[in-house]
Design a protein around this nucleic acid. Structure first.
Length: 425
RNA sequence: GGAGAGGUUUCCGAGUGGUUUAAGGAGCACGCCUGGAAAGCGUGUGAGGUGAAAGCCUCCGAGGGUUCGAAUCCCUCCCUCUCCGCCA
């Protein structure tokens, strides 16, 4: 949620910042105008209410003394009607203003490169190197089909396009990855394991910023008014919705595995091969609630926590700092981790690590009481740690052999009953 | 899904149309007392909005309604508990 006070105090610098994020700047002026009339009406109606409260007390006293109050009561009927019509007007303006604010994106941090799209993203660092092959590496869908570990034909019968069935050692590898990632984050990096609900109510979807603007991107139940979680970020961040935390509780680190559901609206026909763009995929998520003064240091740590998974798996990747035009609506700063897919001969985003500052906290009303007893919004962060739909292919493609076997990375073998490779049955 | 009972401030808990400006108690904070502590006594103790400030306004699960006036009466919804049904 955008802070109306920033708009009230300095609309021009707000617009300057939001321009970088390609926001509709009219929203700022419209919000400013609504804020002005809102406060005008509050001034009026509160004067009337104060008067009304005073006279009500007098009426009570007269009744008690057995005096006739009918003249004043008649007078107060008029007053009451005036108050009611002001209140109706006010709640209309409140709702309009609130809607405007919910459609304004977060302001990017100063360290974020300014640009229109992903071309302006900058490479922060590389890790590892492209694996060398003495043959042409195959894409994961060819290997997976040969090894019979993924089935994207029968999943169409069960559901439809962009769903996949993991089978046999494919399912085991998927399960191993999830367990391995959760173990690393809980045992080494201090995250608490969470298994949240995956059906989400409207208020929580609004809290993290998916609604109201991006309702078409989410799967939705007809009854009740619930959505399928597009990421564990939504249920996990909303755990502390409407709470005032103690400063000593911070920072809070949560990790959660959930399936994630996305409509991928607007991507028809794109990336149809393999499992990189599914309507349902698996992801381990990292979520943090921190003090505002710590949030940028915490973003660096969170990104390293996500990177550690790729390093332990010995997968080549790069860290990108997203430009203002490529960032999501709610984010103030985002690093993407892109893992190398040798068979596809390209990098694929497998993690997105963001600091939302107080944007989500304001929407979801997540606050803390600081040392001086002052109540402030926390900063929220999250990052994938990681998405298997991009990680599974990276493993299949990076560790393939000439005769289409897949060597299991050492660290995953204990999670797979000790097997060292996937071979054709 | 059915029947019943509930939801009040940090917590317990009173309140069934007008001195409720939400009693009382506990907890917490500060002060007095004390060699120190406990007990006792006193004072204070929520959030949001608005305003330069004093102050004022709003909030008793949520949203509507009745009334000059609602924690209190009416309607809808949500949640909790008990019993029944169903079920992994």
């Amino acid at each position: 949620m955008f802070d109306i006070k920033l708009i009230r105090e300095n609309p021009d610098s707000v617009k300057e910042c939001l321009k970088k994020k390609k926001a509709d700047l009219n929203l700022v002026d419209e919000a400013a105008a609504l804020d002005r009339s809102r406060r005008d009406i509050i001034g009026e109606v509160e004067k009337l209410k104060a008067e009304n409260n005073k006279v009500s007390g007098e009426i009570a006293k007269m009744k008690k003394d057995g005096r006739d109050a009918s003249a004043i009561i008649t007078e107060m009927k008029v007053m009451s009607d005036r108050i009611k019509s002001f209140d109706i007007e006010l709640s209309k303006i409140d709702a309009e203003l609130n809607t405007k604010l919910l459609y304004i994106p977060n302001i990017p941090n100063e360290s974020v490169p300014v640009g229109d799209d992903e071309k302006a993203n900058t490479i922060v660092r590389h890790w590892g190197g492209k694996p060398a092959f003495d043959f042409t590496p195959k894409p994961h869908w060819e290997i997976a089909e040969y090894l019979d570990i993924l089935d994207d034909k029968r999943s169409v019968k069960v559901t439809g396009a962009r769903f996949v069935i993991y089978k046999g050692l494919g399912a085991l590898l998927e399960r191993a990855l999830i367990n391995f990632m959760l173990d690393v984050q809980t045992r080494e990096n201090g995250y608490t394991d969470i298994m949240p609900p995956i059906l989400i109510n409207r208020d929580s979807m609004t809290g993290t910023g998916q609604l109201p603007k991006f309702e078409n991107d989410a799967f939705k139940l007809t009854e009740p008014d619930y959505f399928l979680a597009p990421t564990a970020e939504v249920p996990v961040t909303n755990i502390h919705k409407d709470e005032v935390l103690a400063e000593r509780d911070l920072p809070i680190y949560y990790t959660a595995y959930t399936p994630c559901f996305r409509k991928e609206a607007g991507s028809y026909g794109k990336d149809m091969k393999g499992i990189v763009r599914m309507h349902q995929f698996n992801k381990v998520e990292l979520v943090k609630f921190v003090r505002p003064e710590d949030s940028y240091a915490e973003l660096e740590k969170l990104t390293l926590n996500a990177e550690s998974i790729l390093q332990k798996l010995n997968l080549h990747y790069r860290v990108m700092l997203l430009s203002t035009g490529d960032m999501t609506f709610a984010s103030a700063k985002t690093y993407d981790l892109e893992v190398w897919h040798p068979g596809a001969d390209r990098f694929w985003e497998t993690s997105s690590c963001s600091n939302f500052e107080d944007f989500q906290a304001r929407r979801a009303r997540i606050r803390f009481k600081d040392k001086d007893g002052k109540i402030r919004f926390v900063h929220t962060l999250n990052g994938s740690g990681l998405a298997t739909s991009r990680l599974f292919p990276a493993i299949i493609e990076s560790f393939q052999t000439k005769d289409m076997e897949v060597i299991i990375p050492d660290i995953l073998r204990p999670y797979m009953g000790g097997i060292d490779r996937i071979t054709k049955k």
